[in-house]
Design a protein around this nucleic acid. Structure first.
Lengths: 104, 104
DNA sequence: GCAACGCGCAACTTTTTAGTTGCGTTTTCG
DNA sequence: CGAAAACGCAACTAAAAAGTTGCGCGTTGC
């Protein structure tokens, strides 16, 4: 993740998170296909996909007149690892605090 | 996570993510302490902490005249697990696709 | 007791975001 | 060729988010 906050921000919209979930189940989808499954316009879907792509959560490729999108697994795993590091750091802080209290 | 998108949304702001990182290093902090480390007002910090608390990423407790905050590790781990599930699902979809292409 | 500290509430401004509609371009296909 | 499909660009609206300032209230401590 270049910018962890940007990744979480992209995942922080209910519609975009649903899009990610949708893409996790099917191989790859066009903008039109996706917007058919959501109660928003094609342009709104296009904007969401652009946000996800800019956050590297998704990749796109043009095939004739349509643009197909698929998940970029690596970015999900990077975000996962980031949360793991924060949790571990916090766990370490708790541990050091306990030791400090012991030595009092 | 009651609402995964809400958790990611809370983590999706650069300032809030920095607050989380800050809280991961120290045991627990008051609003005043935290706002001293950030270029925003105490009220802005208070709002951010409220957002993090509503997303269950953080817990607060009152001690005299100050309110102290600490990380809620469980929520970080839930978010982490969520990303893991999505990634696994996507991995599975890729596998099924590969098998389908083989059987053609 | 009273001054200073830490905080919450309310009102406000500014920027961002999610969504829309309309129009033009490229590609497909009968 | 010509209609329809899939998309991008631009302008716009409405709502939410990030931030500020001002004021009041409980707590601390000299």
């Amino acid at each position: 993740m270049a910018d962890p906050a940007a990744t979480f921000s992209a995942l922080g919209d209910p519609t975009r998170l649903a899009i990610v979930d949708r893409l996790a189940h099917s191989a790859d989808c066009s903008i039109h296909e996706l917007s058919a499954d959501f109660p928003i316009s094609r342009q709104a879907m296009s904007k969401h996909l652009r946000v996800l792509e800019q956050a590297r959560i998704v990749r796109s490729g043009r095939f004739g007149r349509e643009v197909r999108f698929r998940l970029e697994q690596a970015e999900l795993e990077r975000a996962q690892a980031f949360l793991g590091r924060v949790a571990a750091q916090w766990q370490g802080a708790l541990h050091r605090l306990a030791k400090h209290l012991d030595s009092d």
